[in-house]
């Protein structure tokens, strides 16, 4: 991607605004709609700005993943949402890790390695390694965090916010590697939001 098209730019700005508004107005019922709308717009913009060569495989696996996700949502014994949200950081971390590994295995396709270069530039190497480490850390920490949230330990919400924020910073590394400014903005929203919540004082339960 060399230049951002007008449609893609509008879609990226719109999705970032929707997500930001969703976070700010998170107490209202509209917040979830804003978040879903922002995410749908961002995914549409991602696909619009690229030549998709594996569309059948991508759609199949996205549909399979959506089906599994739907089964998780419909699981009848779920009593509390927060531990499941904590556990969902495991697939998110693995998604980050696998994406970074895919870029690592084929860096020429994303212009982070020229065909006549032997090794990655220093910044690209750090971004790639950072994304891999963050993805691995999230995958490792998600299950213990889920147990801690289930146990109702005081202050564990801050760790959950920090881990969700880490997904933002890992995604930012991927966005910078792929030269995707729209994704970088959304990553910054998630990263900054996570660390802001993490840094806030612990409130009483039932908040």
């Amino acid at each position: 991607m060399t230049a951002l098209s007008g449609v893609a730019a509008i879609a990226w700005v719109g999705s970032a605004l929707l997500m930001l508004l969703g976070l700010v107005r998170s107490r209202s019922e509209l917040a979830l709609r804003l978040g879903i709308g922002g995410m749908a717009l961002a995914i549409g913009a991602s696909l619009y700005t690229h030549d998709v060569v594996n569309l059948p495989e991508m759609v199949s696996l996205a549909a399979l993943g959506a089906g599994i996700g739907y089964l998780v949502v419909r699981w009848p014994t779920i009593r509390s949402v927060l531990p499941i949200l904590a556990l969902l950081l495991l697939p998110i971390g693995l998604c980050l890790l696998l994406t970074a590994l895919a870029i690592d295995r084929n860096p020429i396709a994303f212009d982070i390695l020229r065909p006549d270069d032997a090794t990655l530039a220093s910044l690209s190497w750090w971004l790639l390694t950072g994304a891999e480490l963050i993805g691995a850390a999230m995958a490792i920490a998600a299950a213990p965090l889920c147990r801690a949230v289930s146990g109702g330990r005081r202050g564990v919400e801050r760790w959950l916010a920090a881990l969700a924020g880490l997904a933002g910073w890992g995604g930012l590394a991927i966005a910078l590697l792929l030269n995707e400014p729209g994704m970088a903005v959304i990553a910054t929203i998630v990263g900054a939001g996570g660390f802001t919540l993490c840094a806030m004082p612990v409130r009483a339960r039932g908040d």
């Binding site: 997500m19 969703g22 976070l23 998170s26 917040a31 979830l32 978040g35 922002g38 995410m39 961002a42 995914i43 991602s46 949402v81 927060l82 949200l85 904590a86 969902l88 950081l89 998110i92 998604c95 980050l96 994406t99 919400e157 959950l160 916010a161 969700a164 924020g165 997904a167 933002g168 890992g170 995604g171 991927i174 966005a175 792929l178 995707e180 994704m183 959304i186 990553a187 929203i189 998630v190 939001g193 996570g194 919540l197």
Partner: peptide
Amino acid sequence: VLDLLCALAAFPVMG
């Protein structure tokens, strides 16, 4: 805010 942030954390699927 935390709930919505955890849901939004799935955005790396775009990458």
